[in-house]
Nucleic acid binder design. Sequence first.
DNA 1: TTGAAAGCGGAGGGACCCTCCGTATAATTG
DNA 2: CAATTATACGGAGGGTCCCTCCGCTTTCAA
Lengths: 184, 184
Amino acid sequence: MRRPRADSLRNREKLLMAAAAVFRETGGAGTLEAVARRAGVGIGTLYRHFPTREALFEAVYRREIEQLAELSRELSETDDPVAALRRFLHGMVGMVATKKGMIAALAIAIDGTSEIACFSFATLSAAMERLHAPAVASGSMRADVSADDILQTVVGMCLARREEQWEPAVIRLIDVFVDGLKTD
Amino acid sequence: MRRPRADSLRNREKLLMAAAAVFRETGGAGTLEAVARRAGVGIGTLYRHFPTREALFEAVYRREIEQLAELSRELSETDDPVAALRRFLHGMVGMVATKKGMIAALAIAIDGTSEIACFSFATLSAAMERLHAPAVASGSMRADVSADDILQTVVGMCLARREEQWEPAVIRLIDVFVDGLKTD
DNA sequence: TTGAAAGCGGAGGGACCCTCCGTATAATTG
DNA sequence: CAATTATACGGAGGGTCCCTCCGCTTTCAA
């Protein structure tokens, strides 16, 4: 098993850079041809590296997803598990509001059916679980709502936004929701 | 100002029937060419009647949206405003889960930018407001979350679903959310 | 150095979108 | 019941994007 050719790695990297730029500018709607052009490679090369649009997307935003996982790891060491969960959700919203690509990454994680979208979802799901399980175990959070339920709710709140300054509203909604999750 | 030609009205109706069928079968992803073919008219005719895909969608699902508005009117005569709001949200989820087209109609109402999508959103927004205002006025619901916030949250919950049997989970989530909305 | 494995590029076929305009038909008028 | 005119019809065609396929090029192990 040879190691990958140098030009292959180079092109892969160029494609990721170009895709990040194009997706940022177009809100994820850019054409793959534009990405290939920008990367200075043929369209065929793009498709060889990333067989579907989603595969490219995910490769671009995998890092974003992993940042969320990282945040959950940090917060999981807190004393107050409900507060940690709340802070995680706030952080999630903040990242979605700030980083152009995150919303697209989440949409894929939730909607996508590709193997790769499943990975994203699993990562987020695990991140959520890490904070959810202690909260339930401590008895301060109701047990009939799963970590995935919460994840999908929060992503849904972010996806279904039309106005410009939506961040404060969603933060408030999350607080309401978490209030509802607390056992009396 | 003459009245519209008979063939025009006939074709419009045929197109709506065909579109409803095609969208039901494809989950809203069917092509406009397929709709025209099914209706037995030319593609040009379709575009004359419905200048954009969204316009056609909305025409098809306007009724669905209006059913929700109707439900809110019925419920607005209840004594317990919070319970009425909760029942409306449950009804909404039920309709989304049952009627194939509703989810698409909602997605358009929330995401769409067309004049016509705005109408859908306004209708739903008004329906929501009809139940929200009394609940807030009665003092049993917090005032810092708007009717639109709730609407978008619930639609988001429905949109961001991946599994098959999602209805019970979303019902539970709504209950949690409404619990959070109640003033202690 | 060299030859095969790996990778590259882009032409091209397919799907869909939407427009345009010559033709056809319904409504109106005399 | 023509003749006239406003409306509407249909689908060819141009544009965009998606994705595949295969002849050519480059890399790298031997």
